[in-house]
Design a protein around this nucleic acid. Structure first.
Lengths: 206, 206
DNA sequence: TTTACTTTCAAACAAGCGTTTGATATCTTG
DNA sequence: CAAGATATCAAACGCTTGTTTGAAAGTAAA
């Protein structure tokens, strides 16, 4: 008995990792248990043995640590609110678009948003609601004036909408501009554009 | 023989209409032929008899007339470019969000964007590419200065991203603010916000 | 090694999918 | 009306899906 993990635990881990890949690529409905098991080099029955069901695996694969970490790192920063918004958009876009990213949670989440499964409630409560509140505080700090709640909310939607567009509409953008490729430089240019666009809009309102 | 349509043509029409509903609600993959036929009060075999396949029905159900009409109506207007952008966003949001809307084409398109089917190429060429070009011209008119193509494109993405967010993330927004309901007044308020936000951003850049 | 328990595996299951079939009903037309 | 073309129907087909099964293999402690 060493400090190494058992072979069973390694199977579990491979399944979760493969699940994140496949769910991120095809969404929950489009992903198949067989494909996940194939990538994890496991038997078809493994998912039901270890996680009870496909939904159980989804639930396990969802993990918001990176998103929470991003959020609290920025919240503890003493940069100006404008700079903090820039940092958030930058890091958020990297999580959303970078294909070599080890953490596909954001990509999975983005797919979930359109096609709700029972897991969506968990996502909203644990990750999305706190995220919106965090961004709402940022927006209020930036405009620096009294805003109606509904206007704060819609401004947050405007920022998030711009970010998510590049992921949700990726198949379309690929066809519109075939040369498009989300390497780090491109992602950072996109993030800069969204931050500029949003800050102009927020500050001009004063 | 009267000027009335034959019973067969009426079946076809009912199938197309039901297909638009179901495709808009569940996307192509999530929609089932049986559900479409049930709503159209037709036999399961009807889809394959009249359209060859589920894909054939999707192709038939796609229709960009309303989107094109909106576009050319605005293009022929002599209002200021700012006003034309407001008009476009207003009409576009009504098409996207109004649940009693007879034309679900935009809603179907919005769903297609994330989960491409072979029909996506047709959508992009016939509807989306012209739409982006139209909006690109509008953006250039509004800023009134020389812009790099990539900046024009990203500004268009910023505007469309805000619009599509309300549709793509509707299940999430519903959970975040349960009172949310897209009646005409709410849609117009949203359109006004997006137009304000975008115009501030475009004009401040000068 | 033996015993008890856990994990893997090939195979099968039931349900749902898009599609096909061949008979039946309904139109259209001479 | 009668004949031929067209449209509808219940039923089934072949396939894929998530899940279950019972035997085989692996693991751990006495």
């Amino acid at each position: 008995m060493t400090d190494e993990v058992s072979v069973s635990e390694r199977t579990r881990a491979r399944l979760v990792e493969a699940a994140r890949e496949v769910f991120a690529e095809h969404g929950f409905q489009g992903a198949t248990v067989r494909e996940i098991c194939r990538r994890a080099d496991a038997n078809v029955a493994a998912v039901n043995y270890h996680f009870g069901s496909k939904h159980g695996l989804l639930s396990e694969a969802l993990n918001f640590n990176r998103l929470k970490a991003l959020q609290s790192a920025i919240e503890e920063s003493d940069a100006s609110p404008e700079m903090r918004l820039r940092m958030f958009i930058h890091d958020f876009m990297l999580m959303l678009l970078d294909e070599n990213n080890a953490s596909r949670q954001c990509q999975m989440m983005a797919r979930e948003l359109a096609d709700p499964t029972p897991a969506l409630d968990k996502i909203v409560i644990e990750a999305i609601a706190p995220l919106h509140e965090f961004m709402g505080r940022l927006v209020k700090e930036i405009t620096g004036r009294k805003m109606r709640d509904v206007d704060v909310r819609r401004s947050v939607y405007s920022i998030l909408g711009q970010c998510l567009f590049y992921r949700n509409s990726h198949p379309v953008l690929q066809r519109l501009t075939p040369a498009l490729h989300y390497d780090r430089k491109e992602i950072e240019a996109i993030a800069r554009h969204i931050a500029d666009f949003s800050l102009f809009a927020l500050q001009a309102r004063g």
